[in-house]
Design a protein around this nucleic acid. Structure first.
Lengths: 184, 184, 184, 184
DNA sequence: TATGAATGAGTCTTCATTCAT
DNA sequence: CATGAATGAAGACTCATTCAT
């Protein structure tokens, strides 16, 4: 494992722990046991570490939502997509933090944000199909996407909250609530 | 307008603009035109400014959700609560930022967070009532609250997005989607 | 003597010794016994220290050349101006370094440079007068100024050179050479 | 063109642009596209690059002044020497920068400086001859050299100044002024 | 001959905070 | 109430240099 990977890994751990803003380069350096200059040999910037991490984490973001989504049953697809996104976020806490913290941040170049928004395209197509099949009511598509996404996020936040234990049935309930909202 | 108010006001503007983490005391001092020591005369800490601001903004947080919520019709209550929260957030962007950013922040004392979660109590009571009236399906109450809250947040985020213009019908659609999810 | 003056004085000494480029802020801090932040309380920048020093040193630059220059005898005026400039530079080594090092530097705002070039105006008027009195040959005025200035600089450089001792007669010789060049 | 030459060439360009002090090795490496270690393979030091460059540029320094200086007429020799030096500096801007910047710099070993001062010997001999021919007044020889040299430098500086266009007649005037100064 | 990973001292600067007035 | 001088730890980043390949 080379120094670059060590730096990335350390940064990932620190950020997951403390958030992006609270993580200083000095900390990354101290924690990773790598020399000051070594970091700057591999990364132009502190931001570049974040960016690279971001790309690493979100490169499969687009595909993950649609994984195992089989043609045909709209409802079944909904459940799969929902669970995909939920498990992606819970098993990649950093990806979650990133998508929540960075998505809106002005210090991330638009081009980068766009790349992570790619997956919306497929979700949008999904909702359009649901509407044309007369299963969903013809709501505004962007609205549907955002609410869908927001529902998953809500559940992930509950899951993150250490004071609460999330059971499978709660997940089922959440998906059910989410699903019912869009129906005719 | 006294110096203390000036500091608070300036801080509010800076934070709304840049977020909490990116706002330094030096910046507040420079922007407000108030002297270094004056800030420390009124506030023990940088954190105390944030805290005071937070309390100022959230003191009506609890009541706002339940404003004009008339006894009786569960559905009508739902719409009123939803709109209350939505308008509160859109007309108090800072309150929104706070509730989004601070919720997770480790630098805010639990006691403070709890205080802002006060209003949940009333929402919780509302959902319990809806369930007992057999209008809502008996989902987990915390789950219902969070999804309700998350739906409003989703719409506020769309509203914040400068590239999108949110029409009244979209708000209606969002509330409808939100409402339908909880039904039996 | 307040901290600001101490910083300026220390900087002056260090720069005279080592040149501008070789003088670091850390050095100034260590040498002056002033705290890190104190320097930045008084100066926005490292450059601002230099600039302030520059203005301090060059504010009398304009007047110094023409000091004690009595109306009438062109030749006598020449000798006075020459000696004025020479003594100014030798007794203000930093002013000399500045005018040599900074004059051309791109990091000094034009406005600042212009201010120090102010004194040229008076020298220019002098040469014009000498020409109209048919004492000087009608050379290009800018050329005369620059050569005059350059002659003084040459002598100052010899004076600075530790290996050489400059006698009064050498100064006289230099002025004489300088003077004769411009005659008809 | 081998890597060593590339490094030297790049360094030359950067220094001409920014001066010696402002030119870092990192910059040279970045600009030349040569690897880190490659530079250190060819040069022991950062200073060694400067030194080598300096020697490259100044190796003909001594001969250049005396080029085409024919035996006999002192005045004609003077004009030739003057023009030689002037054209050398204007066509080798870096050599000029070096001779101006390095002369004073403490980081250049005395031995190196001396080597560049070699050419003074010939000029010194020239002035001695002029004096013994009773054409020049018996001024101190070092003084004459420095003033002679300084005059050329003054003209080069005018030439460098982008705001001014230097005509042939100005050059003639400058040489004439310079020449007359030394006469009996 | 050429490469680039690795280093750590050093650079300028920002920050939250204290204290005497 | 209000000021601003003073502090020093910590921040991001640059630099010249070494070394294994």
């Amino acid at each position: 494992m080379n120094k670059k990977s060590i730096v990335l890994q350390t940064t990932l751990e620190l950020i997951t722990d403390q958030g992006i803003g609270a993580t200083s380069l000095s900390q990354i350096i101290k924690e990773s046991g790598v020399a000051n200059g070594t970091v700057y040999h591999h990364f132009k910037n502190k931001d570049e570490i974040i960016t690279e991490l971001y790309l690493m984490l979100t490169q499969d973001f687009g595909t993950v939502v649609m994984r195992n989504v089989e043609e045909g049953d709209i409802k079944k697809q909904f459940y799969t997509m929902w669970e995909n996104l939920f498990h992606y976020f819970t098993s990649n806490p950093l990806a979650f933090i990133f998508s929540e913290q960075i998505a809106r941040s002005t210090e991330i170049p638009q081009e980068l944000k766009d790349r992570s928004r790619q997956y919306y395209k497929e979700i949008e197509a999904y909702f359009r199909e649901g509407v044309s099949q007369k299963i969903f009511k013809p709501y505004n598509t962007l609205l549907m996407e955002e609410l869908f996404f927001g529902n998953v996020v809500s559940l992930v936040k509950i899951h993150e909250n250490e004071a609460v234990t999330l059971l499978d049935k709660h997940i089922s309930q959440a998906i059910e609530i989410s699903w019912k909202g869009f129906l005719r």
